[in-house]
Amino acid sequence: MEGGVFESFFLIFCGAAVVASVALYTRQPLLVAYIAVGAILGPFGLEIIKDVHYVAEMSHIGIIFLLFLLGLDMQPSALLNVLKKATSIALISSAIFGALGYGFGVIIGFSHMESLVLAMASMFSSTIIGIKLLPTTVLHHKHSGDLMVGLLLFQDFIAILCLLVLLSGGGDTVEPMKLIKAIAALPLLAAGAFLFVRFVLLKLIQKFDRFHEYIFLLAIGWCLGLAHLSESVNLSAEIGAFIAGISLATSPISQYIALNLRPLRDFFLVLFFFALGAQLNIPLLPSVLLPALIFAAVVLAAKPTVFFLLLKQQSEKTSLAWDLGFRLGQISEFSILIVFVAATNNLIGEQASLLIQTTAILTFIVSSYIVIFNFPNPIAVSDKLRRD
């Protein structure tokens, strides 16, 4: 990073603190402030921080910790029950949004492959936005929280399959063994994690639970270790982190671990949103702004409506169906990763890449505004809606 790690961190967090203060005074979401700081200080803004590659790499750890904490607060039996209900909704909604993205790409003149990548990028909702803006009491103790986690996890698995397709040649020369390996690895990884926790990790925790520093270190090592193992078998680090968390969920110390890791998670999530803003190519933005605005509007209207209709078919209450629909009404951070993989493999052009990134950021921002000003969430500017 230009100017060194310390200087970059100083600029990122001091800048975020200043802009966040302004955002709170003007009743704006903090997530928007972090993205704005990235756009201002990044290589396409004032060029104060010219290389954000390492920041983007480190920010991924925030998503990993986010999934680990989710797992810590969810019992395995509850996950199995909610996945049964979420599977059909995730499959049908992903197919609808994929068709929507592909059709839009064809209409604006994208190639078949660029339209296919746009379809993949449109299929999923943001884990970070969905989970960060859900009150903790809802997330961990209510049916709506379990249902959202189930939907996001199933979407993550579909996203992994899409990434494997892109990595294996872009859809024309798919390597079936990679897909088979990923599908087979999931239950094996989960079974291995639960056995390791039962016969090794819990015994270590019971023996040394009075050494808080050791428990903290052990939890981070277990989370990142299983995340890395997951990546090595063609799954994602996020899925590995979630399995690491849920395998520890039955332990009496799980809540202690969760409480101590939350500040670390938030530290890396600030970096994630900063990197998101910093990687936006502002000089080229006018060339894709109109189609990005149109597609963002389509996504923001279609996603809540589709989720509402699918949830109502599952006999969910109208209020819950709209609530989850709007919370899932944006494009995912996986969209950025899909764009990166596709661009690296020369499957899409720079305009297609920028359009998807711009659409993702627009839906992040507008969706955050909708949730923060209309639904209970931990960072609401209104006391009436603020729920921790």
Rank of each mutant, 00 (worst) to 15 (best):
L152M: 13
L116W: 08
R265Q: 08
I246N: 00
A20S: 15
I48G: 01
L217S: 14
F211L: 13
I183N: 07
F194L: 08
F242V: 04
L202M: 11
N345F: 12
P378W: 07
G71Y: 01
R198S: 10
L166Y: 06
Y369N: 05
R387H: 14
L80E: 09
P252E: 09
P176E: 03
Q75W: 02
Q279G: 12
I282N: 00
P29D: 01
I49Q: 06
F272Q: 05
A244L: 08
F268N: 02
V306C: 04
Q351M: 13
V52M: 08
V174I: 15
I183Q: 08
V149N: 06
L163M: 15
E238Y: 09
V22G: 01
P286G: 06
L224H: 02
M74I: 13
L300K: 05
G105N: 07
D146P: 03
R198V: 05
V52H: 10
F272A: 02
A237L: 07
L226W: 01
E213M: 10
R210C: 03
H60S: 13
F68V: 10
L152Q: 00
D51F: 11
A301M: 14
L100T: 15
E7V: 13
I89F: 08
L151C: 10
P135N: 09
E7N: 13
H112S: 06
L309K: 07
S332F: 00
Q155P: 08
V233C: 07
F68R: 02
K50C: 06
G221W: 10
S77A: 08
S287N: 12
L83N: 02
G171F: 04
D146W: 15
F334T: 04
F199L: 13
F334E: 00
V200F: 13
S367W: 03
R387P: 01
C14P: 01
V82R: 11
I215H: 01
D172T: 15
G62L: 04
L100S: 14
S21W: 13
L271E: 01
Y34M: 11
L310A: 03
L202S: 15
Y54P: 01
F375T: 10
W222E: 03
S254H: 09
L284F: 11
I239Y: 00
I338T: 12
Y25H: 13
F124K: 02
L24W: 03
N81D: 11
L100I: 08
I205F: 01
K50W: 06
L179I: 15
S353Q: 13
F6R: 04
P76Q: 05
E7D: 13
I180V: 14
A360F: 11
F10A: 15
I128Y: 01
C223H: 05
P378A: 04
A119Y: 01
A56K: 09
K207M: 06
A90N: 00
V52Y: 03
L269N: 03
L324M: 14
Y214H: 08
F216A: 07
V19W: 00
E57P: 09
V37L: 07
K132I: 10
G38V: 12
F272S: 02
G45N: 02
